[in-house]
Design a protein around this nucleic acid. Structure first.
Lengths: 143, 143
DNA sequence: CATCTTATTGCAACCAGTTGCAAGTACAGT
DNA sequence: ACTGTACTTGCAACTGGTTGCAATAAGATG
């Protein structure tokens, strides 16, 4: 089964409909290789179909987020980005609040955190994509 | 030195001014025992001084956040809350995306995560107050 | 205490994201 | 293929939060 029809099946099985708008939004997310803002997606979809509404984009992203098909990340600076969730290659971001540099963080750290939380309380955290703010090595005050 | 004048000193030392508006916002944050939204603070300050602007509240919260005197947490449901940062009693929240229940998480877990990140990359993460979304024990699908 | 510099304020316009609603459409059942 | 219903859409109004700007006030300096 192709990746596309697989997603459609997930939608239907959860009581959602596979509308053209949603398929276009899905395509935009899948073909992008990085983070996209809601506006990026809106722009891309408008090329094929100029009458979509931005609220449809947000509502679709909400559904996909709920189904854990996309991750939502607040990267600071007022832009929320969305990304197609891959099975492998999960990554997280360390964002320096002094110089705004973004570096990657291995998923293992959060995996450990998640396992600890689950063992203690039975709560299963979503750890698809985290943005952690702080101060990078370069920007730390010399002692 | 009282806690109040201590804060004023921190402001001045970092090139900020101790205006009446800021002092009122500080008082509101300090006297609250839990999380406050920007609007809560706005309302409280207006009692004493009806002409403050909501943008002043947000700008002050931004300054205090930068100085690490308050923590900002997105609790989901579109409300961002602010809280005076205590030296002790740091806590975090586990928010269930199915039933919206909020439970607390011991700071130790994040302390460990922070130490790991610092050791690996020299990045010093802000871990004042986290909200972690996921599914609580009750809401997990029975297997 | 008068003066000067610089941060801050209030205002209004603005931006990202959400919501209520009537009209439209996917798709399950027949 | 037709029908009915529940989900979805586009629109417009709205909310939370941000920003540019001219006027103002804090507080350092002499």
């Amino acid at each position: 089964m192709s990746c596309e029809t697989e997603t459609v099946k997930v939608l239907r099985d959860t009581g959602h409909k596979a509308t053209p708008q949603r398929l276009m939004i899905l395509a935009a997310l899948r073909h992008a290789d990085g983070h996209l803002t809601a506006n990026d997606i809106y722009g891309q979809v408008q090329v094929a179909y100029p009458y979509v509404d931005i609220s449809t984009v947000y509502r679709t992203l909400g559904v996909l987020k709920e189904l854990r098909l996309v991750s939502e990340t607040d990267m600071g600076s007022g832009d929320t980005t969305y990304e197609w969730v891959q099975q492998h290659g999960r990554h997280h971001h360390l964002i320096c609040r002094t110089c705004d540099a973004v570096t990657s963080l291995d998923h293992q750290y959060l995996e450990n955190l998640g396992a600890g939380i689950l063992a203690e309380s039975g709560f299963r955290p979503d750890l698809d994509h985290f943005a952690i703010f702080g101060v990078c090595a370069e920007c730390q005050p010399r002692s």
